[in-house]
């Protein structure tokens, strides 16, 4: 897997990261403007993790996501218009307005849902991995979860079973240093969640989660290992949440210092990657700017689509409780 990614792959990775960032910033604004009911957990700062992993997956590979799930869906191929419509609670949303931000999903591209329950995803990904092995289809199931979720029993049961059955599963810990508002040092006695991997009989790998190529390389090896039938890997990506647990803002909070946030923002995953692409002559600063502008126009159009989409009819309330 050490093969050098083509320029096409690099540009695709860049585009996916910018798509997440642009979508999330607009979602934050839309929430502040009253268009998005409920809780909104933004992925800004962590884009390199979703994209570095998802660059190796097909629509047939499955993922489970978290309450902070928009980035995973976008990286997996989710469409802006259906996503904004869902966040707005509209009938054209991916879940017909029944799920919202915390349950946005698209099973057609293997995205088995954002999940409002911290730690809810790993057992489901383990089950999807079981199905892949049962069907011998070569697909991989990836579960994204945070440092906070790594303290949930569900994570431990899923990790043990995935390793026991040698399932094609990848456990991606997005260690952003906080379980909601509680810093990692106050919620677990370890610094590296990957230290837990040997306890389940699987390799644990730590990467810089702000460096998309580091994530890409490590995830590539782990996905390949899973596809070959060699079982799961725990990939810990050290990352940081630029905004708050809910909504935007970020600065001026008591649970973390502005200095700490500023230090991490100096290592913005998109800026770092753009600098590298410019240096390699793959994407000039001007060309990068064009990508941002084009995606901003896509976001604008998607917001208009969502605004025009009707609210669900009250008669739809009881639809789809049962098949």
């Amino acid at each position: 897997m050490a093969t050098q990614p083509t320029d096409e792959v690099l540009l695709d990775i860049h585009r996916r990261m910018v798509r997440i960032r642009t979508f999330e910033d607009e979602a934050g604004r839309m929430a502040e403007n009253g268009f998005i009911p409920g809780a909104l957990h933004l992925y800004v700062g962590e884009e390199a993790v979703a994209v570095g992993v998802m660059a190796h997956l097909t629509d047939e590979d499955q993922i489970t996501s978290t309450h902070r799930g928009h980035g995973h869906l976008i990286a997996k191929g989710g469409e802006f218009d259906r996503m904004f419509a869902e966040l707005f609670g509209r009938v054209d949303g991916y879940c017909k307005g029944k799920g919202g931000s915390m349950h946005v999903s698209n099973l057609e591209i293997g995205m088995l849902g954002a999940n409002g329950i911290v730690g809810g995803g790993p057992p489901i990904a383990m089950g999807a991995g079981f199905a892949n092995k049962y069907k011998k289809n070569g697909n991989v199931a990836v579960t994204f979860f945070g440092d906070g979720a790594s303290n949930e029993g569900a994570f431990h049961e899923a990790a043990n079973m995935a390793a026991l059955y040698k399932l094609p599963v990848l456990f991606v810990c997005e260690n952003n240093g906080f379980g909601e508002y509680t810093p990692q040092r106050d919620h677990q006695a370890i610094t590296d969640v990957a230290d837990r991997a040997p306890g389940y009989g699987m390799p644990g790998v730590i990467v810089d989660g702000m460096d998309v190529m580091a994530v890409y390389e490590a995830a590539g090896a782990a996905v390949e290992r899973a596809r070959q039938g060699d079982g799961p890997t725990l990939l810990e990506c050290k990352t940081y949440r630029f905004y708050d647990h809910v909504g935007r803002r970020g600065m001026g909070r008591t649970y973390r210092t502005d200095e700490e946030l500023a230090e991490w923002m100096k290592r913005d995953p998109i800026e770092m990657f753009e600098a590298r692409l410019a240096e390699q002559g793959v994407l000039s600063a001007d060309a990068a700017k064009e990508v941002h502008e084009e995606i901003a126009r896509d976001v604008e159009a998607a917001v208009e689509f969502a605004k025009a989409s009707p609210m669900p009819d009250p008669d739809a309330l009881l639809d789809d409780v049962y098949a």
């Binding site: 499955q62 057992p123 089950g127 991995g129 569900a154």
Partner: peptide, 11 residues
């Protein structure tokens, strides 16, 4: 979870 994930994946 095994049941949920496996069912979501078609079993």
């Amino acid at each position: 979870g095994l049941g949920v994930g496996a069912a979501a994946a078609g079993l």
